[in-house]
Amino acid sequence: MGDIIEAFSTALGLILHGDPTLLEIVALSLRVSGAALALSVALGLPLGAGLGIARFPGRNILSALLNTCMGLPPVVAGLMVYLLLGRSGPLGALHWLFTPAAMILAQTLLVTPIVAALTRQVIEDLWEEYAEQLRSFGIGVWRAIPTLLYEGRFTLATVVLAAFGRAISEVGAVIVVGGNIAHHTRVMTTAIALETSRGDFALALGLGMLLLGFAVLINGGVEVLRAGMRRVGA
């Protein structure tokens, strides 16, 4: 029991004094997951919106596929990127394996289906509600996409926050393609896994607390958005 309490106080000390190792790990986590999120949003929002509006053969199959990919296990995403970037893989010449770039790619693969699938649902529902009204204004299908994205802005922002939560908290993908190399590819989740297995609980706990702190911030953000939605009657 005393060990746990001591680990907690050491962990708090690391956070409060801004331990350089801890800060470095947190900064890389934010950089990798932030970049992956930006890519996922850039790809997933238009893809999901297009899929929510367009009607073409095979659309249902594509939607089902996307929904399935939402549950893609992180280690499998990591494995796929590993094969892609490995020495004999099609993108092996990039030498990205065990770099932050590989980690960004893996998390993008993991999170893009989440953004796209949830966006599709949001936009499909809005389109059903708005289609005839927009048509009466002379607005065609493609012009409707930015309008619907704006109309769904609060729900979609929640989607983006959820996607970030997924990226920053996963361990499987980044450990496979990043390798948890100190000062290079070590992020919060992989560091926690390593330090715990080594019995060094202070850093693991400190990172764990910060990770939980991010979760609290994200949920706070969702609540703010909910209030915004209520304000405009969405």
Partner: peptide, 29 residues
Amino acid sequence: RAASALVFQRPVLLRRSARANVDFPSRVR
């Protein structure tokens, strides 16, 4: 069509201010 407009029995209002709603179709045009 460009010179006529239809107000639905149950109009769909945008999730914006009243003013932005009035502005919207003209802006699109």
